[in-house]
Design a protein around this nucleic acid. Structure first.
Length: 429
RNA sequence: GGAGAGGUGGCAGAGUGGCUGAAUGUACCGGUUUCGAAAACCGGCGUGGGGCAACCCACCGAGGGUUCGAAUCCCUCCCUCUCCGCCA
């Protein structure tokens, strides 16, 4: 949610922002919101006056003589009826305003490239060398199935498509990358979190996934709960409704959790292998800090670096892209994706997504802090980034580190989590 | 699942129908004192909206209702705690 003041003062920038995100219907919400706001601002003074009269009269009524009392009582009833009408109108307008405000996207920052979709994202840097194979490389699912590490058939039979079983050393590698990621971030001052996987609607709204993301979300209707698609939802919502002390900021969390996504509308896309699945595990970094744009940008670069350092430790080639307006989500002000090289796709593919929001999520979630100087409370800034998502990260790990005989080399950083082994798998015939 | 208690300002905690937007404590800000600090003392201090201002309006978990008037009474929901039952 944007500050209503920003909307009044600079509606053009907000409208232009929605257009940069290629969301014309959301841009239209700007004008609807302003129109409702205008009506409300006309109505409010009338209500204030009426309430004031009513309040004063009812306060004096106890002191009145019985004869005068009757007259005042009559007058009060009239006012009551009039107030009821206006208050009904006010309630309606407020609800409408909230609805329109919730539709208005965060304004993309100046450093967000212009563009319609992910094909127009702009590469910022490329790190590591793409390997040239002296043998015919296998896709991760070929290695996995041949090694007995992967079973899609039985998984989809019992759970539907886009589900998987991991076995043996691949299941252990999956756990290894998650553990490595948590420990890396804990070493950098983040607090480890194991959050709820099912949340109520306000957390989904607050983080900006609703309205809009309902179709991507599994829902336990009976209990009114939503399965999280990312721990960004429960962790960013952690301090919802709270008044933090500036001295307690920044809050830096690293959460490990399962994530669930319906992947509606992706039929026929990325159907083979572990790339697009309904359920995965992710280690996510979340920061809540003071309302300072420069500081948010610093954090943003720091959380991208955390992920890059992990990829470097995993010896994987990757690139960082600045996500263009058309590919940017509703709540984000700016986003970097990290794409890791996947030989079977012959492409860099998304493995990480680092967003900064400024106060957009925090305003929806009502996360504020009291400044050190004792001034008025301010709305916090929030950010988040993937540290690692698995099994997706297993794709580049298996494919980039495979050897001619079908075994897979384990980078030194991960060996301690696999009993010190430098290689997993047996030679394939 | 059954029975009961409760949700009030940053925090703690009074307040059961009429100048109560809310005592008190604590935290915080300013000052006095001090070489400096602590303590003590004095003053200020909820959030949001409107107004140049005096000041006005809303908000006591959320939403309805009763009443001239609701933090206070009634209903629904959410949450927390205690006891019993069940259970990974």
């Amino acid at each position: 949610m944007l500050d209503l003041k920003l909307l009044r003062e600079n509606p053009d920038a907000v409208r232009a922002g929605a257009m940069k995100k290629r969301l014309p219907d959301r841009a239209a919400a700007v004008d609807r919101a302003l129109q409702i706001d205008g009506e409300l601002r006309l109505l409010n003074p009338k209500l204030d006056v009426l309430r004031n009269e009513q309040k004063n009269a009812s306060r004096d009524i106890g002191k009145l003589a019985p004869a005068e009392r009757e007259a005042v009582l009559g007058k009060q009833k009239e006012r009551k009826a009039e107030l009821a009408g206006l208050e009904e109108r006010e309630k309606q307008l407020r609800a409408d305003l909230d609805q329109q405000l919730s539709l208005i996207p965060n304004v993309p920052d100046a450093d967000v490239p212009e563009g319609k979709d992910d094909t127009e994202n702009v590469e910022v840097r490329r790190v590591g060398t793409v390997r040239t194979f002296e043998f015919k490389p296998r896709a991760h699912f070929e290695i996995g199935e041949a090694q007995g590490w992967l079973d899609f058939e039985r998984a989809s039979k019992m759970a539907g498509s886009r589900n998987y079983f991991l076995f043996g050393d691949l299941a252990l590698l999956h756990d290894a990358v998650l553990r490595y990621a948590v420990e890396l971030l804990v070493g950098r001052g983040f607090t480890a979190v194991d959050p709820p996987l099912m949340v109520r609607d306000p957390a989904m709204f607050g983080t900006g996934f609703f309205p809009g993301g309902e179709e991507q979300t599994y829902r336990a209707e009976k209990d009114g709960l939503n399965l999280i698609g990312t721990s960004e939802v429960p962790v960013t919502s952690l301090h919802s409704g709270e008044m933090l002390a500036e001295g307690d900021l920044p809050k830096k969390y690293v959460a490990r959790s399962a994530c669930f996504r319906r992947e509606a509308g992706t039929y026929g896309k990325d159907t083979r292998g572990l790339y697009r699945v309904h359920q995965f595990h992710k280690v996510e970094q979340v920061i809540v800090d003071v309302a300072d744009k420069a500081r948010s940008i610093e954090h943003h670069h720091a959380i991208v670096k955390n992920a890059e350092d992990m990829l470097t430790a995993f010896e994987l080639p990757y690139r960082v892209v600045a996500v263009c307006g058309g590919d940017l989500g509703v709540p984000q002000a700016m986003k970097y994706d990290i794409e890791t090289w996947m030989p079977s796709r012959n492409a860099y593919s998304e493995t990480h997504s680092a967003s900064r929001f400024y106060d957009y999520q925090a305003r929806r979630l009502d996360i504020r802090y009291r400044p050190k100087d004792g001034g008025k409370p301010l709305v916090c800034h929030t950010l988040n980034n993937t540290v690692v998502a698995s099994p997706r990260i297993l794709i580049p790990l298996l494919e980039n580190h495979q050897q001619a005989d079908g075994t897979v080399r384990i980078p030194p950083a991960l060996q301690p989590y696999l009993g010190g082994r430098a290689v997993i798998g047996k030679p394939l015939g």
